[in-house]
Design a protein around this nucleic acid. Structure first.
Length: 457
DNA sequence: TGACCGTTAAACAATC
DNA sequence: CGATTGTTTAACGGTC
């Protein structure tokens, strides 16, 4: 059996066929490694127990920086060394790296969590794993072999898992309508098999699935809940975290898929906070936000997230309360209660942009019942699916080649200017509703907070 | 209870 | 020829 690119040496016989033919049936896949811990111990509860002095623990995104972001070199050709999952797979206790300025002291715990992650099955379905692998690839297209490699690299669980998972991957690729087979270019003689891409039509569904997998209450951000969710039931908004505590992603681009991964890999108590970012990322998918350059959680108990969005050059949102063209602009979410307003306003924006690609958000953030329906239809192949709008940029006739990978940024930039304006407005409204503070403001408040703390201590 | 989904296993053909 | 890839079918458990 030939070696598999990127595989660790401890890899046993990869091919089920080899074992099977040799009469070596793999041991039944134990289910004891399933990530029940994800829901077992609620880190959120832990965070709620924190005192005010632990704010920085809640707001510090060292976990993100150290655990996750290091795993993804900017761009798409990441060569992560560890799994992005340890927090999800872990014991549910926020890692010590949450401690203020403890970034250097977390290596041992990181190692422990990484060890845990090696044993835990990823909480993603195979389709999502494949999706993430493909989205991480530079060309948004991968051969099966490299999908294996990606999964192995990011989810070491599979390196020691029974070998059937590859079969499952292939099975998924073949069966799942979300994935499309693309013939390798004729010039590329070597390499067996085809390349696999994500069908852009189904991308929102995959995103939805990704979200549903870890954001079971994500719909709360689309439809006003009857009562505030428990994670936002207490504690007033707090302060902005110091600028220097943000994860250092400035001037770096995280593609949306990576960021989605990061969001879904976040510790429990940070997931809901990150939903704001998720909205922004959704915009990124279908509109003009070119990158998310920084992500910070402001308050672990409430839905306070802080992210920094970079619009494409020359696409700064204007006539907005904030200058989004400035990369240092910080976006601070508001009280979770405003989620309702936010959602409603955002939906209004979306509805106004009915002809734009932003309409994909309608699907992405539809009520859970609809979402489930969409999901139960196996990522329906509705020809009128929202992303189909991307093809013509709102009625345009320019044909978009299918099964050749998702439309790139270039294609997105060719959208109609009026749609851009609406998208900008929608994004602006979103960010405004989330509560905008300029970096200057943030720094000022941060400095105040810092000096206050110093005085107290 | 049934539909649906995800997973796993298996078999087989095609391809490298 | 063996390994890999791709397809198909079936069974099972969990969820809704």
């Amino acid at each position: 059996m030939g070696p598999i690119i990127g595989m660790t040496p401890d890899k046993k016989a990869e091919t089920p066929g080899l074992q099977e033919r040799a009469g070596l049936r793999p041991a039944p896949c134990g289910t004891g490694t399933l990530p029940e811990a994800e829901s077992a111990a609620s880190p959120r509860a832990t965070s709620l127990d924190r005192g005010p002095g632990d704010d920085e623990e809640l707001t510090n995104l060292n976990w993100l920086h150290e655990n996750l972001l290091q795993n993804f070199t900017l761009g798409s050709e990441a060569q992560p060394s560890v799994s992005p999952l340890f927090d999800i797979e872990g014991d549910g206790v926020p890692p010590p790296s949450f401690s203020s300025s403890s970034s250097s002291s977390s290596s041992s715990s990181l190692a422990g969590r990484e060890k845990d992650s090696l044993k835990s099955k990823p909480p993603y379905s195979f389709s999502l794993l494949i999706y993430m692998a493909i989205e991480q690839s530079p060309n948004k297209c991968l051969p099966v072999k490299e999908i294996y490699s990606w999964i192995l690299e990011h989810f070491p669980y599979f390196s020691s898992a029974p070998t059937g998972w590859k079969n499952s991957v292939r099975h998924n690729l073949s069966l799942n309508k979300c994935f499309r087979k693309v013939e390798r270019s004729l010039g590329k003689a070597n390499g067996k098999g085809s390349l696999w891409c994500v069908d852009p039509e189904y991308r929102p569904n995959l995103i939805q699935a990704l979200k549903k997998q870890h954001f079971p209450s994500a719909h709360a951000f689309c439809t006003p809940p009857a009562s505030p969710p428990r994670y936002c039931a207490s504690s007033p908004p707090r302060h902005l975290i110091p600028q220097d505590q943000s994860c250092s992603l400035k001037e770096s681009d995280i593609d949306a898929a990576t960021a989605m991964m990061l969001l879904n890999s976040a510790p429990e108590q940070h997931r809901m906070e990150c939903l704001y970012l998720e909205f922004v990322l959704s915009l990124n998918y279908c509109s003009r936000i070119e990158s998310v350059a920084s992500v910070r959680v402001i308050d672990g108990e409430r839905s306070h997230a802080l992210c920094l969005c970079l619009f494409a050059a020359g696409r700064a949102v204007q006539d907005r309360p904030m200058d989004l063209s400035r990369p240092e602009v910080a976006v601070v979410s508001s009280d979770p209660k405003e989620d309702h307003n936010y959602s409603a306003s955002f939906q209004r924006c979306v509805s106004r942009c009915s002809t734009s690609s932003l309409s994909s958000l309608d699907e992405g953030y539809q009520p859970a019942s609809q979402a489930r329906r969409a999901g139960s239809e196996g990522f329906h192949s509705d020809e009128d699916s929202d992303l189909a709008e991307e093809r013509g940029g709102g009625g345009g006739s320019a044909p978009r080649p299918r099964a050749k990978g998702p439309p790139g940024k270039k294609a997105r930039r060719e959208a109609k200017p009026e749609i851009d304006e609406e998208l900008k407005e929608a994004a602006g409204s979103l960010l405004h509703l989330a509560g905008i503070r300029t970096c200057l403001d943030a720094s000022r408040r941060t400095a105040k907070s810092k000096s206050r703390k110093r005085d107290q201590s």
